[in-house]
Design a protein around this nucleic acid. Structure first.
Lengths: 211, 211
DNA sequence: GATTTGACTGGGTCGCCAGTCAGGATCGTT
DNA sequence: AACGATCCTGACTGGCGACCCAGTCAAATC
């Protein structure tokens, strides 16, 4: 129980750090190659580590993938919470949430991960649970922003939860389209759809959104 | 070139029929086991046929899967077209389209197929193309029904294409939620969301929808 | 400085599965 | 009947990939 000093890592810290490193590499590899063609050895290579080490830290490949999805989901929800805790009017915060939803460039392919995860979640209850929490997080945040806007007198909405579900659904669906067929749906058009629908849901004019 | 008689099949017909049978079995197996754990031999078993025969009719597994997705997509669009060609007012036809969108029971898991296909489409351009056509079909049909309703004076909408895209997106997203977490989104609630959003898009009252 | 514990290596194994192939059955044609 | 084309079988294979394990090395503990 010596060495609780700052910089130096204890044995346990080292293991934690390595695990995090592996989760990170796993996410990168899955994003690049897709879940179906991701090999444990690919993740090992991406971490400059032997294949055996993966199974030292994670019993099975499924464990690793599931842990990676959980970590990614949790970090996403955390960032979301920061957004609605930020400054500005309700409509400014709502707009920030919408923009956070939409991948900001062709290179930001983070949604690919969730497409893989949806397919996986159909068969794997653990994965399904993670997805439920992630989606619940989004809906909760949207519903919260809407309620904040109502309290501030900015918004009118007789069912914030329902509105949040509809918005979340629409964004999910449109992002799929955008991710798969970027030619058929530009980011600009996607954001425009989001603002139109959101404006209707909260009873404000589309023009109320910031430029 | 003899034997163009009805019941008896020529050799070419027999091959076509066998191919269709294999596509059908492929769909059933993929729905049941998921794309990731579907083996060629599973499809052979489901058709009561040897493993080798699959590769007689389809060069590779990918060919078979792609052909199956294409066939399924085309049949779906065909059924959709029948719906909007059917009788009734525009709002009745619109409602029929919405209801066709939503799986009618827990046992109708056809959407699972498209979750797998989305993930696959990220890597496979052929699959992506099929998905683009399917989604384009849905949007086109929705936009068509809306336009029909406008001509009939039932609907008001200044951007039928945009409205169709938003509706299609919302339904996609909500159906994912319904498929994955039936506990978090009942069919009834899903349909309610669809009707609320659709009513807004076409400028009618929610109560205008048939009971 | 001796010993124990934990992190890590890399080669090996074992099962699985897409695709092949040689041969057999069946059909249409002449 | 004979023959070629087509449909089909089932055993086989070659490669791959998750997981195992015996052993190494360094850090922590005594």
């Amino acid at each position: 129980m010596r060495s609780a000093e700052g910089a130096r890592s204890s044995r346990a810290d080292q293991a934690d750090q390595r695990r995090a490193e592996l989760l990170d590499a796993a996410r990168r590899v899955v994003l690049e190659r897709g879940l179906a063609s991701t090999r444990v050895s690919d993740i090992a290579k991406a971490t400059n580590v032997s294949g055996g080490l993966i199974h030292y830290h994670f019993a099975t490949k499924d464990d690793l993938i599931t842990a990676m999805l959980r970590a990614t989901s949790e970090s996403e929800v955390r960032r979301l919470r920061e957004i609605i805790a930020g400054p500005g009017t309700a409509i400014q915060r709502l707009d920030r949430v919408l923009r956070f939803y939409i991948p900001s460039s062709r290179s930001d392919q983070s949604w690919i991960l969730w497409l893989d995860a949806w397919a996986l979640g159909v068969r794997e209850p653990h994965v399904r649970e993670i997805l439920l929490e992630l989606e619940g997080g989004w809906i909760e945040i949207l519903s919260e922003v809407i309620s904040q806007g109502m309290e501030a007198g900015e918004f009118t909405c007789d069912d914030p939860q329902g509105a949040a579900e509809r918005l979340d659904g629409m964004l999910d669906g449109l992002v799929v389209r955008y991710t798969l067929h970027s030619g058929a749906m530009s980011r600009k058009r996607l954001l425009e759809h989001a603002r139109i629908a959101a404006a209707r849901e909260v009873g404000v004019d589309r023009a109320s959104f910031p430029a």
